[in-house]
């Protein structure tokens, strides 16, 4: 009894000039129930300092790079004299590489169109809220990313190298109608490259998120391989040359 009284006195001490009280105890779905301690900081000044730091870092890097590397300026434009090779800027050179292997409508319009469509619809295809805010979602997600990237790199390099050595366009000339070499076969090969990881993952009971990770990684890794191939390995006439064997005056870094 006395114990209870002293506890009571401890919670509601008499003769204090503070005015506070427990209003109610909540068990249930209140906004902060079950959220644990709040781990937040005031944005001022931490976030702003981060941003100032990034601002200084980025501008300093640009500043230094601009001191040592000059922006290129070629001879004045001349519609009568074609440059060789006429390369697109680096972020489109992957598309240009793709153009070498199939019909331009397929490489330049349909495939980029599908990619944009894929990107836009991605959050509506994978709409689960689980594992948001975690890199690669899970350990398995990380493994899927690494293996898909590796697989795609090998498959795309093989595709580019083989098509370059035994051009479908040339070897099927006269054997099959042009749409077979220009449309059907390349589309089929790319579809197979894209679908293999999807089928493998589906069979292993992968989640939609994991399939999306594979698809996105196929896209990203293909873009990287195609860009490197177009940027570093294409010389005069957009022919394939190894960088160490590039004819003089075709250094791809020149126009960069």
């Amino acid at each position: 009894m006395t114990n209870e009284l002293s506890a009571n006195e401890e919670i509601f001490p008499k003769g204090t000039n503070k005015s506070y009280a427990i209003v109610e105890l909540v068990r249930g779905d209140g906004p902060m129930v079950g959220k644990g301690p709040e781990k937040t900081v005031f944005s001022f000044p931490v976030v702003l300092l981060w941003e100032v730091l990034l601002l200084l870092g980025v501008t300093l890097a640009l500043f230094l790079f601009s001191l040592i590397k000059q922006a290129p300026l070629d001879a004045i434009a001349n519609p009568q004299v074609t440059t060789d090779p006429a390369k697109a800027p680096w972020y489109f050179v992957g598309l240009q590489e793709l153009l070498e292997h199939m019909h331009p409508t397929l490489a330049g319009i349909i495939i980029p169109g599908i990619l944009v469509l894929f990107l836009v619809s991605l959050p509506y295809l994978d709409h689960s809220r689980t594992h948001a805010g975690v890199w690669f979602s899970t350990r398995r997600g990380k493994r899927i990313t690494v293996w898909t990237a590796l697989y795609t790199a090998i498959a795309m390099i093989a595709f580019i190298a083989l098509d370059n050595a035994f051009s479908m366009r040339e070897s099927l000339r006269g054997v099959a109608p042009p749409w077979v070499a220009q449309w059907l076969l390349p589309a089929l090969i790319l579809a197979v490259i894209v679908l293999i990881p999807v089928v493998v993952l589906r069979r292993k009971g992968a989640s939609t998120r994991e399939v999306m990770i594979a698809l996105f990684t196929v896209m990203l890794a293909s873009a990287v391989v195609l860009t490197i191939s177009g940027f570093l390995f294409r010389g005069p006439g957009f022919e394939m040359f190894p960088p160490w064997n590039m004819p003089d005056g075709y250094n791809p870094w020149n126009d960069f």
Partner: peptide, 15 residues
Amino acid sequence: WDQLSYWAITVGTNI
């Protein structure tokens, strides 16, 4: 408006 830009844009817009 140099050779680099002229032909890069020609290639790009051809696509």
